[in-house]
Nucleic acid binder design. Structure first.
Lengths: 113, 113
DNA sequence: CACGATAGGTAGTCTATCGACATATTATGG
DNA sequence: CCATAATATGTCGATAGACTACCTATCGTG
């Protein structure tokens, strides 16, 4: 049996990068912790699968929005820590602006503005 | 030079079906008019490309959420009119619920709830 | 010792969206 | 009269993001 009330967790496609970048503005974290943070804050409405998480982190790094280095997790395991860059913060701002803009537009169409 | 202020229109992936179904709740429309309606109400923030529109309408029809038949547009051209079905209205409700849920969750993560 | 949680990752697939193209008719401007 | 824009429908191929399913490895607990 799965979990009781959580009617199938899903991401809104295209928002994962924004969620990860936002999470990293607080402090550098390793991937697994980023996923946990998003799931916890969203009260399990958003679930970040490994198959989405690690490709996303690689993507962000390739674009220069985060940097990473090996470290050690609080529990003593090897872990890759990700840090948001200046370009990453700028990108995050742009993504938030564009997302808000799109949401307003959607609400206008759905007549619930 | 493109248009002045409109910083590149884009859909939030996964919302097109919802937008189309919502548009068809008002009255049956042909595809081109659906796209125009969404673009107009969104003040050109959302642009519905033909390459997205017609496959989406086919998709919705295949799932039984809309029906269609040939007719004539107000300007006298041949046009395929789409009508939302009962199952379509039910589906629309489900999509709105799930989208709202996801948005609340995103806002919790972005700390702007 | 088995298992779940922690941690990182890959492979293959699926699906939605997009840009570009193709077709046809009608309206408009020069 | 001709070019072009707008209306209207569609297809094709590429791309990107997310998912399932798998793999390794360590650590703690029952």
């Amino acid at each position: 049996m799965p979990r009781p009330s959580a009617s199938k967790a899903e991401l809104v496609p295209g928002t994962l990068d924004m969620l990860i970048l936002q999470t990293l503005t607080v402090q550098p974290l390793h991937g697994y912790a980023v996923a946990q943070h998003i799931e916890r804050l969203s009260e399990s409405v958003l679930r970040v699968e490994q198959g989405s998480l690690y490709p996303a982190l690689e993507r962000l790094q390739k674009k220069g929005w985060v940097t990473s280095k090996w470290g050690e997790s609080p529990t003593g395991r090897r872990a890759r820590y990700y840090t948001i860059s200046a370009a990453g913060r700028k990108q995050l701002g742009a993504e938030i602006t564009s997302f808000d803009r799109a949401l307003l537009a959607i609400n206008r169409v759905m007549r619930r503005a």
